[in-house]
Design a protein around this nucleic acid. Structure first.
Length: 719
DNA sequence: AAGTTCCGAGTTTTT
DNA sequence: CTCGGAACTT
């Protein structure tokens, strides 16, 4: 935590923002200027000094983490439980509204939230039923199209196609909307759109909330999309107060529908806006801030703001020109090794990169140097396939119309219901305009399938009914979960399978029971199962358990937003990589890349390392790289170039390694040597990287082919 | 229904 | 190169 956070004194600008009495307040909060502090103090001030009821406050964030932090900090500051105060994400609040007003929102009481994985499955199903080629209409693109339209508030019937392709997109969009409606499914974008429609079409509901929420406060306002902004406008109305906090220079989600214009034009849309700039930075040293200011100054479309340092000058920014990506990774590992022995712990250090593909080489270097690391991103708990399967059982038990859940588990674990049978079910559902579940019931009555398929389907229906009857009388959510896992055969399915993967899945499913037992629903208007399913959909959970202590943090620049580290490495500063190839041609996109660079630089508190490689292996090919234009935008006076001592280069060919070295890699192992491995059998060492127990050894096995093994772990025996 | 091979694509991600 | 999905076997 920085110095400011621990003190209760606010600087002038912060004070002005906290105590604004204007109807609309725009707080332009630079990186590290205490924006959450302002938001929290403002809410406290409204309640304590202005005697506003906590009941009249609505605070919106983008992530559950931010919402949780805000709630905790308000509670601490006010020393009161945040009773009645609505603090949550846009999606969470929309969900709450839709549950409370499901009828007015034209939704079934049991509507389910689907994630983008479910959404894509539904779209694929629609493409098949419309006889469309997935090559011509890639599901991912369709998904992007539908979500983009929803973000703009455009439903299928409002979409005006310009050509034949557009016509088809419209047909798909319409079919998708119908399917969701029929199955009681709501995707993420739909949560927002439905909440907006609810306000727009139900004036009584809108008036109720307008009268209740006198003060609406929004965090990270630069990330709002069209529909979120419109929803806010409706909610605030003529009488409400709106405080938005954000930083146009940190808008990096334009590609996801965020409209930077929302913050840029705010004062034009709202008369009587008080604009406050928070420019004092409590996070970084002066040198780092100077670099950040210079880089971002190259953007034209800005509200304008300059970070002012509170801390001293600090170390210069270090720049390393690597020979190639391997060299860059080795350099990073060496620097990290040095600093972690000189007063810094591993968790003080972060390595940031533009795209996930870059992490691989970095990981290998860190493994070789025996540095513990943690990668942010990737699959989260509730996104894992086996967890989603388990939850799909609950969903179907809970609401038989849920086609997404049905499709997921009809043959998971396998029970002899194959593609043919499923096709018939889909056809029947289509002709009868009913759910898949109902379609199966029709098929069973009319006996329109082979006896084998009919008995498999009967067994499935009976299974679901049986689970349903068994868990209904159970009071405890964890018991219900456990019974479902047992009776569905899901957990046994993985128990029978061998291998690490299956075992991890069993562990995850067991963890799901634990999660269910620890789950405490926030409001009691939902049944425990309903609340748990909503929780799973809206909060996908942590990427990894936080057990992994004291690790180097590896993440993309996007993921780093909102975080800070004492030492930051930004690597791969090369034209085509950062700024990315696909963003280089359009000015708007390039400016977003530059903002991303600004975000990256301002993550560093004490030390910042920048690096680029002159050669990099990209898409399997070696390519020459030019340094990023962003490097040129940093004043030379801030930079100190590091000269390489010994450069690490990629082995050009295997032969080179053979001829150049006959030395021992680890424990008497040499190149070309015949070895034996417990699991993989006999093989020959064909290549290696590094020495000692952390060396990575390539062994060509007789039966298993080429494998890279870690010398210390592999227990290779020379033969 | 599981294991194989072949092909093509290849930023950024939260809800 | 390296992953994932589709299409093809067994």
């Amino acid at each position: 935590m920085n110095m400011q956070a621990s003190s209760n004194i606010l600087n002038d600008a912060q004070q002005q923002a906290v105590t604004s009495t204007a109807p609309y307040t725009l707080v332009l909060a630079g990186a590290g200027s205490g924006k959450t502090r302002v938001l929290v103090h403002r809410i406290a001030w409204l309640i304590q000094t202005e005697h506003l009821s906590p009941y009249s406050v609505l605070a919106v964030t983008f992530t559950n983490k931010a919402a949780g932090e805000m709630r905790a900090r308000i509670e601490k500051l006010l020393n009161l439980p945040t009773q009645g105060m609505w603090i949550g994400t846009f999606h969470g609040l929309a969900h709450r509204l839709l549950r409370a007003h499901f009828q007015e929102a034209n939704l079934p009481e049991n509507f389910q939230i689907i994630d983008s994985d479910d959404q894509q499955r539904l779209i694929k199903r629609i493409l098949t039923s419309l006889n469309l080629d997935e090559k011509q209409y890639p599901p991912r693109q369709i998904q992007g199209f539908i979500n983009a339209k929803k973000d703009e508030g455009i439903r299928a019937d409002k979409f005006k196609p310009l050509d034949a392709h557009g016509m088809t997109l419209k047909r798909i969009y319409q079919a998708y909307e119908e399917l969701c409606q029929r199955s009681g499914l709501v995707d993420f974008a739909e949560l927002l759109l439905s909440a907006y429609d609810l306000f727009l079409k139900q004036p009584t509901v809108l008036t109720h909330y307008q009268q209740r929420f006198r003060h609406v406060l929004v965090d990270e306002f630069q990330d709002t999309n069209t529909i979120q902004y419109e929803w806010l406008k409706l909610l605030v109305g003529d009488q409400g107060h709106l405080t938005v906090v954000g930083d146009d220079d940190q808008s990096i989600y334009g590609w996801r529908g965020a409209k930077i214009e929302n913050i840029q034009d705010f004062y034009r849309n709202f008369q009587n806006t008080l604009t406050v700039r928070l420019e004092e930075n409590y996070r970084s040293t002066a040198g780092i801030l100077k670099a950040a200011n210079h880089v971002i100054a190259n953007n034209f479309n800005r509200l304008g703001k300059e970070l002012k340092a509170v801390s001293g000058q600090g170390d210069p920014i270090r720049l390393y020109t690597a020979f190639n990506d391997l060299d860059e990774a080795h350099f990073l590992a060496a620097q990290i090794k040095y600093w972690s022995g000189h007063g810094y712990s591993h968790e003080d250090i972060a390595v940031l990169y533009r795209s996930n593909a870059q992490s691989r080489v970095l990981e290998e270097a860190l493994i070789a140097a025996n540095i513990p690391y943690r990668i942010y991103g990737g699959f989260r708990f509730f996104e894992r396939a086996e967890i989603k399967d388990a939850l799909a059982y609950l969903r179907l038990i809970y609401y038989r119309q849920d086609d997404a859940a049905f499709e997921r588990i009809i043959n998971t674990p396998t029970r002899g219901i194959g593609d043919q049978t499923l096709m018939t079910i889909r056809e029947t559902a289509k002709t009868h305009h009913c759910s898949l579940w109902q379609a199966v019931e029709i098929i069973l009555t009319e006996k329109t399938l082979s006896n084998r398929a009919l008995s498999a389907l009967t067994a499935f229906i009976e299974l679901i009914e049986h689970i349903s009857n068994t868990i209904q009388p159970l009071q405890n959510l964890a018991e219900q979960m456990e019974e479902t896992l047992k009776l569905s055969g899901l957990i046994n399915h993985y128990r029978q399978e061998k291998g690490e993967k299956a075992q991890a899945k069993v562990e995850n499913l067991e963890e799901l029971i634990t999660a269910a037992s620890q789950f405490a629903p926030e409001n009691s208007q939902l049944t425990p199962i309903q609340a748990f399913l909503a929780h799973a959909a809206l909060e996908a959970g942590e990427t990894q358990s936080q057990l992994t202590n004291d690790c180097i943090q590896l993440m993309t620049l996007h993921t780093a937003k909102g975080l800070e580290f004492k030492i930051v490495f930004i690597c791969g500063l090369e034209e085509g990589l950062f700024p990315h190839e696909l963003s280089i041609r359009e000015e708007k996109k390039l400016e977003e890349e530059r903002r991303l660079c600004y975000v990256g630089i301002t993550r560093a508190r004490e030390k910042l390392y920048l690096s680029y490689a002159e050669n990099r292996r990209l898409h399997g090919k070696e390519s020459f790289q030019r340094p990023s234009r962003f490097l040129g935008e940093i004043p030379a006076s801030c930079l100190e170039e590091i000269r390489p001592k010994a450069r690490v280069s990629r082995p050009v060919t295997q032969e080179l390694n053979f001829s150049s070295s006959a030395d021992v890699i680890y424990d008497g192992l040499k190149l070309g040597q015949r070895v034996h491995h417990q699991k993989f059998g006999y093989g020959v060492i064909t290549n290696y990287e590094g020495h000692g127990e952390n060396a990575r050894i390539a062994v060509k096995f007789e039966s298993e082919g080429l494998k890279w093994l870690l010398a210390g772990f592999a227990k290779l025996k020379s033969v």
